[in-house]
């Protein structure tokens, strides 16, 4: 079953769609090139939300993002959830679908929270099986996102970086690299964020996320309710150097500001991409003219 559209028209920096901005976006405000849609908000109902999304889709290329698939749960995937998301994908034809490396349900109960995974061989296998099930039905490769976490487990057998690499390889899927989450985890768990980026398999990085976090002093929370923090902008520039031409989405979920503010963040991200790309091109020019 093919539900995906050719991803060629997802380029540059886009925005996460928030319903408060639908009318302005439909009027073309902000010159936004593409939108990321939280599939969970549209997969379980009909009526106004879906009609709005169909209108948005007529004007914008979209990608799907999800929070409720619970890829990392030791239990089977929720078939009704998967059916609903795939039905929506058939209808809307996103360029791709992404989900978090996390678990959100157990024992038939949905926790509505991205819960942390222990980095085990067993977890790699569970994730790979679930991702492959989704990919088989989707008719294409999906993206998995590195999650922000505020807890680790004594049982873990490997680092987050090794875990991520093994999941991508075993499941043969792509990475949605959340740059803010890398920064948050580096601060919370005490590792080098740049080294983490350099350790990622560049050929599997297919999208990036940028968002704001809350700084509680001793720890950071991936809250999505504020502008992207300055250190994250710096890390993003490094990510763009390592993974050029990868589409980027700016997310903002809590205390959602005006579209103007979000477009400002989007334009700043575009500026970083342009600057890094120009520096890289100048470097190549310099090399090609070198004696």
């Amino acid at each position: 079953m093919a539900a995906l559209r050719e991803p060629g028209n997802i380029e540059g920096v886009g925005l996460g769609l928030r319903s408060a901005h639908s009318a302005e976006l439909l009027a073309g405000v902000g010159d936004v090139p593409w939108l990321e849609v939280l599939a969970d908000n549209y997969a379980h109902g009909d009526g106004l939300p879906l009609r709005n999304l169909e209108s948005i889709r007529e004007r914008y290329p979209v990608v799907f993002h999800g929070v409720g698939m619970s890829l990392g749960s030791a239990e089977p995937l929720d078939k009704s959830y998967l059916d609903a998301v795939l039905d929506l994908a058939r209808r809307i034809e996103p360029a791709w679908l992404s989900e978090h490396l996390a678990w959100t349900s157990s024992g038939g109960r949905h926790h509505h929270e991205l819960l942390p995974l222990p980095f085990l061989d067993e977890t790699v296998q569970v994730l790979a099986e679930h991702v492959q099930q989704v990919q088989d039905r989707l008719g294409g490769r999906m993206l998995v996102e590195n999650s922000a976490t505020y807890m680790a487990f004594h049982d873990s057998q490997m680092s987050e970086l090794e875990f991520l690499g093994r999941v991508l390889e075993t499941a043969d899927c792509l990475l949605l690299l959340d740059v803010n989450n890398v920064y948050v985890n580096a601060r919370n768990h005490g590792f080098d964020a740049r080294e983490f980026l350099r350790g990622l398999p560049a050929d599997r990085v297919a999208q990036m996320h940028l968002a704001g976090h809350d700084d509680h002093g001793d720890y950071l929370i991936d809250a999505h309710g504020s502008p992207v923090a300055e250190p994250v902008w710096a890390l993003f520039a490094e990510a763009v150097r390592l993974f050029p031409e990868v589409p980027v989405c700016v997310e903002w979920d809590r205390d959602v500001p005006s579209l103007e503010v979000l477009v400002g963040e989007m334009n700043r991200a575009s500026g970083v991409v342009t600057e890094v790309t120009e520096v890289a091109l100048a470097g190549q020019e310099g090399l090609s003219h070198a004696p």
Partner: peptide
């Protein structure tokens, strides 16, 4: 709590409390 490894700046109980509070 016995299975949670604390973060460098956050004891295990606070790690758990963060998730309990968030849910």
């Amino acid at each position: 709590l016995e299975r949670i490894r604390p973060l460098p700046e956050l004891p295990a109980k606070q790690c758990l409390d963060l998730y309990r509070g968030s849910v």
